[in-house]
């Protein structure tokens, strides 16, 4: 059955399907019916207009003003918020630059580590013949439990007298333990948070790879094996290229999280110790809500828009690179 959908309600003319009662019959909707249609579509349009279009443009406008969110009026400053964040202000630009550097490290390390761990894990799980359901459930647990409670639990594990230092001591590796805690040492805090981000991201990535592995025609891998390819060669030269699309999705999802997510940084360190784990998402939050009522909401909005542009560029580059290969 086919139906020609009217291009606009204003036309209000529809050709019914070629089968059934209305075959070949054209009718014009009555004014009342058009009104009903508008009435039922209106909530969705209002919702989109308010939640989508209005907030988008309001937020963009906010990035050009100086405001603390309280006064009835704001001060138009044009592009100054952007220039202050990027280079002009000795107060605002240094923390943004430091946060950008940390964000770049997270953007490089978190997606790559996620792929490096989840792909072999998916291969192993795909080969498992026993306890398949149990194993897949176990590896999926970090995803369904990730949240504030788990981050707080990680804090306990990572503190000076926490489980990791205790374990290292018990194994005779006390020299590797961190006397100030893994989040207290400025040199280990960011890498530790990246590891926890990877721990949270691996389950979904593994699931995506598993889904991909199960769509690969076994004949392809069997043919390679018959030709003498080793297990490593099969996976690297046959399976990995076939899963390139999934790898692109995983990289993109994790890049987006690394660029814009800040929940883990807010809860576990609040950017500390000092400023050593501050990232751009957290810096945006600080400018909006932690600046002691200073008129920095516009700066927060400007930083948010720069993050948006960066996210679009990263997504575009990522898609281009994976498509070209």
């Amino acid at each position: 059955m086919t139906t020609d959908v009217p291009t606009s309600l204003g036309a209000a003319t529809v050709t019914r399907g070629r089968t059934g009662r209305g075959r070949g019959h054209r009718r014009r909707y009555q004014g009342r019916e058009v009104a009903w249609a508008y009435a039922f579509v209106a909530p969705a349009i209002v919702l989109f207009a308010v939640m989508g279009v209005y907030t988008l443009f309001w937020g963009l406008q906010l990035s050009f003003v100086q405001w603390n969110g309280l006064t009835p009026t704001w001060l138009w400053v044009g592009l100054r918020n952007y220039t202050d964040l990027l280079w002009a202000s000795p107060v605002f630009s240094p923390p943004v630059r430091a946060a950008a550097l940390n964000t770049v490290w997270v953007m490089i390390a978190a997606p790559l580590l996620t792929v490096a761990i989840s792909f072999p894990l998916a291969l192993a799980l795909n080969r498992a013949r026993r306890f398949v359901g149990l194993l897949r459930s176990v590896y999926f647990v970090p995803y369904i439990t990730t949240g504030i409670a788990v981050y707080l639990a990680w804090q306990y594990v990572l503190e000076p007298n926490g489980a990791i230092n205790t374990l290292l001591g018990a194994l005779g590796l006390g020299s590797l333990s961190q006397p100030q805690g893994w989040l207290g040492n400025p040199d280990t805090a960011l890498p530790t948070l990246i590891v926890i981000m990877v721990w949270s991201a691996v389950p979904v990535a593994t699931l995506l790879y598993l889904t991909g592995l199960q769509t690969i025609d076994p004949a392809l891998t069997e043919a390679a094996q018959i030709d003498g390819a080793s297990w490593w060669r099969v996976n690297l030269s046959v399976v990995w290229p076939l899963l390139r699309g999934i790898t692109a999705v995983i990289l993109l999802l994790n890049l987006r999280d690394a660029l814009q997510g800040f929940q883990i940084f807010l809860i576990m360190t609040d950017g500390g110790p000092g400023d050593h784990t501050n990232v751009l998402g957290l810096q945006t939050y600080r400018l909006a809500f932690q600046s002691e009522l200073a008129p920095t909401l516009g700066l927060a909005s400007a930083l948010g828009w720069m993050l948006f542009v960066a996210a679009v560029v990263v997504a575009f580059v990522n898609l281009r690179v994976t498509r070209e290969r």
Partner: peptide, 12 residues
């Protein structure tokens, strides 16, 4: 001068 006497991990 107080640096040596902070409780371990107080910075977190």
């Amino acid at each position: 001068q107080v640096t040596p006497y902070w409780m371990p991990g107080t910075q977190t």
